[in-house]
Each structure stands twice: as structure tokens, then as C-alpha cells.
């Protein structure tokens, strides 16, 4: 039998024996970024479609979570930096070729945008509120006046944020598992699905719940299609990508991925949602939690397995 043995004298921390430079911070951030993008996308979409009254959770209530989600996500990103006090250097330059750079900038845009959106609905939450600071009132009026332009900006930037969480990984041609252009759309759809699940979970209106249940079903369908597409692409690709796919087809990530992400995170919640739509009573938290946890686990697995996959030479 033809054999190959590689003995390396290198033992750099976090690099060898397998790469592990990114820990929990990046996958958590990718999940939260996708979730925030999902919630904002639906808020802006239904605001533009004039459904503010029919879908109060989607347009208003759920968006109050977004600044918190983004703050935690940004916090995770910050913790990932090895040179934390230099973080501001991200904002002294724009580098078009670097997904990390335009990711940083889109966060800089979408975080205040989401805050302003929440501010414009603040009086829904606390009706007799009076602003102590004058310019907050000014922002509130401004958003209410230019709601449409705001929604358009939000819809576009949320799609960029959602797709960027995938492109951040897919731009690395050194990691065969990530280096596929389907990863951007897959992460976007997954983010939208977690957003829809959150809205469904928070909603008290029957109509709104069933609408987001249907939307979520559609997104799960697309996600499953993309996942099949992902592996078809790997199997028809070069040796490095075939080997990367083996991590999920018999390798160490087979059970966590197909059992944890695909079955428990996509198939089971889809079945529960169909049963709910058919009239069976199922607590809405069940499918919602499964989708959210599935989305989180998906990102952890992709980040960890991707760092293991590499070119052998």
C-alpha cells in the first residue's frame, strides 16, 4: 500500500496540530449577526408592505431585541481580537477585498439603524414617555417621517449583514470546507429562518404566528436544498474539498451535523410547524427553540470543522 507520512517540527499554539485560532466568539457572533439580520429584514419588509397593524411583533416588538443581540455579537467580536485596544483601526480604512472590513462597517451602519428603529416605536412600549434628551425626540420624529427610506436602507443592509456572515468564511480559499460560494446564501437563509422563528415565538397574534410558521417552513426547505447542494458541490470538487466533506460523511462531525443540525434543527421543527398548521396544538416555543439552537450549533460546527480542513502538500 502506498503510504505517506508527514512529520512536522512546527508546534505553534492555536495553529498545530490543527488550526484553532477562532474559538467560540466567531461562531456566536455569526449566529447573532444572522439572527439580527433576519429580524430586521422582516421588520423592514412588512413595514414597506404596510402591515404594521397586522404584524405588530414583526415590525415593532421583535426589533427591540436587535440592538441587544448586536451588542452581544459585537462584544464577542471584540473578545476575539488579540489586540483589543487597537480595535478602532478597523474604522480608519475601508478595504473592499476584505470581508472582515466591510463586515465591520456594515455593523457600524446597522447597529445605530436598528436603535433608531426601536426608538421610533418606543412610545408603543411606554405610552406616556417623555424624552429627557432633546435629540432623541428628534431622531424619533426623523424615523417616523422617513420610515420608507429607513426601511429600504435596513432591508438592504440586513441582507448584506446576513450574507456577509457566510462570505466571511467562504472567502478563505485556504480552508476547503468554507471555500464554496453557497455558504453566503446558506448562512443568509439560516439567519432569516432564525429571525422568523424568533418572531413566531414572540407573537401573540394567531395570524402572525401562522404566517411566520409558513415563512419558516419555506426557509427550512431552501436551507435543506442548499445543504444538499453544498455536499454535491464538495463531492464533485477537488481532493481537498472531498476530504473536507468526509468530516461530515462518516467523519467526526457526522452525528452532530446530520443529527443535531439537520434532524433536530431543521426537520423536526418543520414537522412540528406542519402539525401546528394542521390544527394540532403544539407550544410554539418548541420549534422556535429547536431552530435557534440548530442555527447556533450549525455555526459552531462549520467554524470548527472548517479550521480542521486544509490542503495537504
Amino acid at each position: 500500500m502506498n503510504e505517506e507520512i508527514l512529520i512536522s517540527g512546527r508546534m505553534n499554539p492555536h495553529i498545530d496540530p490543527t488550526l484553532g485560532i477562532w474559538g467560540w466568539e466567531i461562531p456566536l457572533y455569526l449566529f447573532l449577526g444572522g439572527l439580527a439580520a433576519g429580524i430586521l429584514f422582516f421588520a423592514a419588509l412588512y413595514s414597506l408592505l404596510g402591515k404594521e397593524k397586522e404584524l405588530p411583533t414583526a415590525v415593532r416588538k421583535a426589533t427591540f431585541l436587535v440592538p441587544v443581540i448586536l451588542m452581544v455579537g459585537l462584544g464577542a467580536l471584540f473578545l476575539d481580537l488579540k489586540n483589543k485596544l487597537y480595535f478602532w483601526q478597523l474604522y480608519t480604512t475601508i478595504r473592499i477585498e476584505s470581508p472582515m472590513s466591510w463586515g465591520a462597517w456594515i455593523l457600524m451602519l446597522i447597529t445605530p439603524l436598528s436603535m433608531a428603529w426601536c426608538l421610533s416605536y418606543w412610545r408603543d412600549l411606554i405610552p406616556n414617555w417623555t424624552w429627557q434628551v432633546k435629540y432623541l425626540e428628534w431622531i424619533e420624529e426623523f424615523v417616523q417621517k422617513y420610515r420608507k427610506a429607513f426601511a429600504w436602507t435596513m432591508i438592504i443592509s440586513s441582507v448584506i449583514l446576513g450574507i456577509y456572515t457566510g462570505i466571511l468564511l467562504s472567502a478563505f480559499n485556504a480552508r476547503p470546507l468554507w471555500n464554496t460560494s453557497i455558504l453566503g446564501p446558506l448562512f443568509l437563509v439560516s439567519g432569516l429562518s432564525t429571525g422568523a422563528a424568533t418572531i413566531m415565538w414572540l407573537s401573540k397574534e394567531k395570524l402572525e404566528r401562522s404566517l411566520f410558521s409558513k415563512i419558516d417552513l419555506l426557509l427550512i426547505g431552501i436551507e435543506v436544498f442548499f445543504i444538499i447542494h453544498l455536499f454535491m458541490g464538495f463531492m464533485a470538487s477537488n481532493a481537498a474539498q472531498i476530504e473536507a466533506a468526509q468530516l461530515f460523511l462518516g467523519g467526526a462531525y457526522t452525528l452532530p451535523f446530520w443529527g443535531g443540525v439537520v434532524l433536530l434543527g431543521l426537520v423536526v421543527p418543520a414537522i412540528l410547524e406542519v402539525m401546528e398548521l394542521r390544527g394540532k396544538h403544539i407550544p410554539v416555543a418548541f420549534p422556535a427553540i429547536l431552530i435557534l439552537v440548530g442555527g447556533l450549533v450549525f455555526r459552531f460546527i462549520m467554524v470548527e470543522a472548517g479550521q480542521i480542513s486544509q490542503y495537504l502538500y
Binding site: 512546527r10 505553534n12 499554539p13 492555536h14 495553529i15 498545530d16 488550526l19 485560532i21 477562532w22 476575539d80 481580537l81 488579540k82 489586540n83 483589543k84 487597537y86 480595535f87 483601526q89 478597523l90 476584505s98 472582515m100 472567502a171 478563505f172 480559499n173 485556504a174 480552508r175 479550521q307 486544509q310 490542503y311
Partner: peptide, 20 residues
């Protein structure tokens, strides 16, 4: 002086030639 230690370049190197 400009490196924030985000690790993107470490991920991007097929030779794993960089370290933190």
C-alpha cells in the same frame, strides 16, 4: 502597529505560516 489580532490572515494562509 496596525494589527488588531482578528486572526483572519491566520485562517487565510494555506501554509499555516502565521501565528498569534
Amino acid at each position: 502597529g496596525a494589527c488588531i489580532g482578528c486572526g483572519a490572515c491566520v485562517q487565510s494562509c494555506p501554509y499555516n505560516a502565521r501565528y498569534s
